[in-house]
């Protein structure tokens, strides 16, 4: 062994020593480190634990019903699926200390309008209003109970709910037609719009009353039903609230 070491060139011997010291240093430093700095499983465990004990700020709607009976009102209304904290804000502080900490009570119109203002990107059928036109000075709660929201009285005009259609029709050639011309609207529809629906025309002949070749109505575009549109129903190509043919 000693002979072998002697046989190695002097320069290499010195280098080997230096590298041995460096490697030894690295290994011993690693050895001396606390497990928190090198044990990966432990690191994952502590991170998960740290993540799990972070403060909860939204209590979750389940606990609200323990004390508040508004839940009974809310569960049958349109807002039945809303969490209490959607409107009243994060309330874990309140559930921990119901006397001292009170959740927020939104009173401004802006709060309701954030969901219910008309926005063409919103899904059709979602109740929307034009805030500037819809009783602009009144707070929403003066007419609607937020826990059971519904129109305060049966709406007289279709456009109270079907604002987008009304706006479209207002600038279309069909502007002069009343809704009733094409739809028969049962009174119940105004109270429970989803349960009882208004009728819609179902046959081509309905449109032909004005637009058929032999229609007595003047100044409307006329087509021959026998040759126009083939197998399609009129409204598969023309949107009746905004017929594009002038």
């Amino acid at each position: 062994m000693k002979n072998f070491w002697k046989a190695v060139p002097e320069s290499l011997r010195r280098l080997v020593l230096v590298f041995a010291v460096l490697a030894g240093g690295f290994v011993s430093i690693r050895f001396m480190l606390p497990p928190s700095l090198k044990d990966n499983a432990l690191h994952v465990k502590t991170t998960v634990a740290r993540e799990m004990v972070k403060t909860v700020k939204y209590a979750g709607s389940d606990v609200c019903a323990d004390c508040h009976d508004q839940y009974q009102v809310k569960k049958n209304g349109y807002h039945r699926n809303l969490s209490c904290e959607t409107c009243h804000g994060a309330a874990k502080g309140h559930t921990d200390d119901p006397i001292e900490v009170k959740p927020t009570l939104p009173k401004l119109r802006e709060f309701c309008v954030r969901c219910h203002a008309f926005n063409p990107s919103r899904p059709t059928g979602f109740p929307q209003i034009s805030s500037a036109a819809h009783n602009p000075m009144k707070p929403c709660v003066s007419c609607h109970n937020p826990h059971d929201p519904k129109p305060p009285q049966v709406p007289q005009e279709c456009q109270a709910c079907h604002a987008e259609i009304a706006r479209t029709k207002a600038v279309s050639p069909h502007v002069a037609l009343e809704c009733k011309t094409c739809h028969s609207v049962p009174d119940e529809h105004k109270v429970t719009p989803r349960a009882v629906k208004a009728s819609i025309p179902s046959v081509r002949e309905f449109c032909a009353k004005c637009h058929g070749k032999d229609s007595p109505v003047k100044e409307t575009p006329k087509v021959d039903l026998a040759t126009h549109g083939e197998k399609y129903l009129c409204w598969q190509c023309h949107y009746p609230h905004m017929p594009e043919v002038k």
Partner: peptide
Amino acid sequence: LFSTDISDEASAFD
């Protein structure tokens, strides 16, 4: 590194 060997063999090895 306090190396001292400057013989020809050492240089050849270098």
